[in-house]
Nucleic acid binder design. Structure first.
Lengths: 155, 155
DNA sequence: CTTCTAAAGTCAACATAGTTGACATGAAGG
DNA sequence: CCTTCATGTCAACTATGTTGACTTTAGAAG
């Protein structure tokens, strides 16, 4: 577990642009960092990190999700899920119960403490997005989302 | 070194949206993945990965950069830089020379082979961006960049 | 020439995040 | 009862990063 991991400002490097799209590659990189920096810092102070947040984020939005479905969404192996998930259970940020009817799979749910941490971490990220969208206005925000969808689906 | 590492399609999860900005958090995540997926796949086939690409990318845009400056830009420790950098030197994708005047620091430069790989990997990323920008049009592209700048600088 | 300093390189120990492969357990269903 | 499927666990491995403690190299200052 990393300790506090202070900001690491890392000024956006002034690199010569060899291609017209180089600026956008760098913006994607620094944008991802910019969005996650404060959240990661907060998580580190809780003794957690990005994979823990990813688990909490998904479970918050899919209460009673089974382990198999979680693995699918996260895109990692069950062995890779194992350690962060167990930590969250030990720390009582998550509960795992067996449903009365469907005893075969365990159902994951956030505890109140888990909800609090998920909310605070995601709030840091949403705050960054909100500020950027406020600057850009509704049409800019919509354009950003349209471009990101095209990139994500890459089609 | 990971082997071919096939795509990992990972359909954008349909998660309930607890907050209005949740969609944008997920778009940032899947956008980053979408942009880097093909490039990472190409790099893996070359026995390389993202840190190697980052080094090649920076050196391509700052020929004759010194190690210390490279560490600054990449934001990692010199020990972390050491292994990927040595691999690139061994594979003759980079050269390190001492300048006639300034013998104190080594100057890094891409070889022809290094340039080829940097170009191909970055091309995969630029291709994704180009397609998205074509869909969005010039004004959409400009709006995307403005939002990303605000996120990256987080101010 | 000697000494100090800065850049670079190296070594060890560690943490985290992921992988495969192999195998154990526990509940549902035929 | 026996199979199957979801889950859990163990081991070994790779990769990427960290800190700390050096050494080496070469320019600069005395």
């Amino acid at each position: 577990m990393p300790k506090t991991s202070q900001a690491a400002g890392l000024h956006r490097a002034s690199l010569a642009k060899l291609h017209d799209l180089d600026a956008s590659l760098e913006l994607m990189y620094y944008g991802w960092r910019g969005m996650t920096l404060e959240a990661d810092d907060y998580l580190a102070r809780q003794g957690l990190s990005r994979p823990h947040h990813r688990i909490l984020y998904v479970v918050a939005r899919r209460p009673d999700i089974a382990i198999g479905a979680l693995i699918e969404i996260l895109g990692i192996s069950k062995q890779a899920l194992n350690r962060p998930l167990n930590l969250l259970l030990e720390r009582k940020l998550l509960t795992s119960t067996r449903a009365p009817e469907q005893h075969r799979s365990k159902l994951l749910r956030l505890t109140a403490a888990g909800q609090r941490i998920e909310q605070k971490a995601s709030d840091h990220e949403r705050k960054v997005m909100r500020r950027a969208f406020e600057r850009a206005g509704p049409s800019g925000a919509a354009a950003w989302m349209a471009v990101m969808e095209a990139i994500a689906d890459n089609n």
